[in-house]
Simulated scan of single mutants.
Amino acid sequence: MESEHVNKGDSSKIYFLVIVIVALLGTNGYLFFKDRQQSEVTVTVSTEKDKLRLEVEKIENELDKVNALNLDLNKNLLEEQKLARIKIQELKSALEKGTLTQRELDNAAAQINDLKTFVKNYNDQIVSLQKENKFLKVKQDSLETTVKSINEKATNLASENAKLSATVKVASALKIQEATITAFRTKSSGKKIDVTRSSSAEKLSVKFNVVANDLAEKGFHNVYLRVFDPAGNLLADDSNHFEADGQDMQYSHAMNIDYNNDNSYYTIDWANSKPFIKGIYTIILYTDGHTMGKAQIELK
Rank of each mutant, 00 (worst) to 15 (best):
E48H: 02
F33V: 15
H241E: 10
T182V: 14
F208I: 00
L24Y: 12
F242C: 03
S200H: 09
K148V: 01
A212C: 02
K13C: 07
K203V: 06
G289Q: 05
L115G: 01
E80R: 12
S252T: 10
T44S: 15
T47W: 10
D288H: 05
Y259D: 01
E80L: 15
V127E: 13
K131G: 08
H221A: 01
S93P: 04
V170S: 13
L164V: 13
K75R: 12
D141N: 13
S239N: 12
I14N: 01
T186V: 15
G232H: 00
N272R: 04
M255Q: 10
F135I: 10
L215V: 05
K75Y: 11
I280H: 07
A110S: 12
S3P: 00
D35V: 06
A295N: 10
A201Q: 00
R36V: 01
A166V: 08
G293D: 04
D229H: 08
L83S: 13
N107K: 06
D124H: 09
P230H: 02
I176S: 06
V22C: 11
L17A: 14
R226G: 02
N7Y: 13
L31M: 09
T196V: 07
S252L: 02
K187W: 08
K13A: 14
E160R: 11
S188E: 14
S165V: 00
R85T: 07
E60A: 14
K13N: 13
S198Y: 11
V6Q: 12
H253M: 06
E62K: 13
S128W: 15
N113M: 10
D10E: 11
I280F: 03
A166L: 12
T167W: 11
K87I: 06
V41C: 08
V127F: 11
D124W: 11
R103W: 12
M292E: 00
M249S: 06
